[in-house]
């Protein structure tokens, strides 16, 4: 007779353990961290290029750039002024996991780093299941996509703390409505902090930079988007 054993184990417990170690290590060092997620082509790399160019002289930012193939994004980020950029080529995997991030972090001198940005693989489904040890997930959506994306990928929008709407210079060129995407996103996650910007025109970027500065200058609590005033 087969014997049934209730084991009650989390399938991703190994990943979660590694993520917890990363989180503790970053917290100890006072490094803020975000996990940047979006569909392919929403502008994750563009947003990071702009951020690095503007903030690099005042703030030490490390970037781990995940991609299925090629290290093109990492090279773009280095060209934009990124001094600590590490590519992770997953070779087919649709998401980054904590083990990949831990391995990549081993190659970074974390002493001067104030902010770690993990640019995930362009995908709104799979990365939502994997904790990478970050303080928060930032989900990016652009005005050339459907404004119902939060409804189509609720898990990601639910787990994110921040939503960035990119390409607002193109508003009016498609049926995308800013009010609708915000309404949809807030119905999934009422606590979302929302930024509206354009990496091309530069509109709204200053607010984003200020938020990054505050984030990096403080030690944000896990899952909290509120900067702590010192």
């Amino acid at each position: 007779m087969p014997e049934r054993i209730e084991i009650e184990k989390k399938v991703l417990s190994e990943n979660d353990r590694t993520a917890a170690t990363i989180r503790a290590n970053l917290k100890k060092r006072g490094i803020a961290s975000i996990n940047l997620v979006s569909s392919p082509g929403s502008g994750k790399t563009s947003l990071l290029e702009r951020s690095l160019t503007t903030l690099n002289k005042e703030l030490s930012i490390a970037v781990i750039a995940g991609d299925v193939q090629t290290d093109n994004d990492a090279r773009r980020l280095e060209a934009a002024g990124g001094t600590i950029v590490r590519p992770i080529v997953t070779g087919g995997a649709c998401h980054l996991d904590a083990r990949m991030v831990a391995k990549s972090l081993e190659s970074i001198d974390l002493d001067p780093v104030k902010l770690l940005v993990i640019e995930n693989v362009g995908n709104l489904v799979c990365p939502s299941s994997y904790d990478l040890g970050e303080d928060m997930k930032v989900v990016l959506i652009s005005t050339t996509e459907g404004d119902d994306k939060p409804l189509k990928y609720p898990a990601m929008f639910r787990k994110a703390s921040v939503m960035v709407v990119n390409k607002i210079d193109l508003l009016g060129s498609s049926d995308f409505m800013l009010s609708r995407v915000k309404e949809n996103a807030l119905n999934i996650n009422g606590a979302l902090k929302i930024f509206e910007l354009s990496c091309r025109s530069g509109e709204g970027l200053n607010t984003w930079y200020s938020w990054l500065r505050e984030l990096a200058g403080t030690r944000p609590q896990t899952k909290s988007t509120k900067p702590i005033l010192i």
């Binding site: 087969p2 049934r4 054993i5 084991i7 009650e8 989390k10 991703l12």
Partner: peptide, 18 residues
């Protein structure tokens, strides 16, 4: 909209039969 998730995020192995 202040809703806390109680369940729906599980990814667990409940039991195995050996």
């Amino acid at each position: 909209r202040q809703i806390k998730l109680i369940s729906g995020n599980e990814l667990d192995i409940a039991y195995i039969e050996l």
